[in-house]
Nucleic acid binder design. Structure first.
Lengths: 123, 123
DNA sequence: CAATGCTGATTACGCGTGTAAACCTAGAAT
DNA sequence: ATTCTAGGTTTACACGCGTAATCAGCATTG
């Protein structure tokens, strides 16, 4: 299960979001972000197939694609990688970074508070 | 100022850490992680020079390299990019992710608490 | 001064990526 | 059955990356 590329991950996002899609649906879904031609989407899908990240099942004359790689796993690997590379493996410095940058929204703060409270008493 | 690659960023880490270094010092500094030949390091340094991420000043027969790109900026861009790509631009879900993963260390938690308290009353 | 040897610059090379044109094939339409 | 066509598959190509061999300039030394 080789690592998936930037362009490929855009398609994965859509697949994770809606569970499944045809090539054309995918193309439409990313149309505003990318202007990919149909062939481009197909090629990317094939690479994802080869990497084992998705599977395809025939449906009449076309295919329906579904994720095999779990979003959770991908997210975990990407997050871990960034945190390790830039923040010495610890989460807090990243939050601190955003805090200094004043890039924490009100709802972010609310949720962080909630999370911490949860962790403090629960479990 | 094009984006810097994975291998290049390893050299940047060292430069940010010590402020400056020669090619050979860099090679030693990353020796255990990479086994790069001297030529490899030189080539990477040249790419960084072309990208404007570092500068070099002659020092006798060799060069001394310093970062031009600020670590802060790099970190900000990378973090922002990940958060946007995977967590819809918000920080809390990332922390939640690590929390679910039980990947928050004791000191992470302590610091998060401290950060939140700080934001709550201070400023 | 010529030979030797650092150190940086240039060139190379295979591989993944982004993007797409060209090609192929099983159904649909006639 | 023959042709048309909506998909999918193969091939292509330029570019960046990881890695390094090779080339070139200049300083040290015999």
């Amino acid at each position: 299960m080789k690592s998936i590329s930037e362009a490929e991950s855009i398609l994965m996002q859509v697949l994770w979001q809606r569970g499944e899609a045809t090539a054309e649906e995918l193309r439409e879904a990313v149309a505003e972000r990318t202007d990919w031609q149909p062939g481009t989407v197909k090629a990317l899908l094939n690479r994802l197939l080869n990497k084992g990240a998705i599977r395809a099942e025939r449906e009449g004359r076309r295919f329906r694609y579904r994720p095999v790689l779990e979003r959770e796993d991908y997210v975990a690997e990407q997050s871990r990688s960034l945190i390790d590379r830039l923040f010495d493996g610890r989460v807090a410095p990243l939050v601190a970074h955003f805090s200094e940058q004043k890039a924490l929204s009100k709802s972010d703060l609310d949720e962080l508070r909630r999370l911490i409270r949860e962790l403090d008493d629960g479990e």
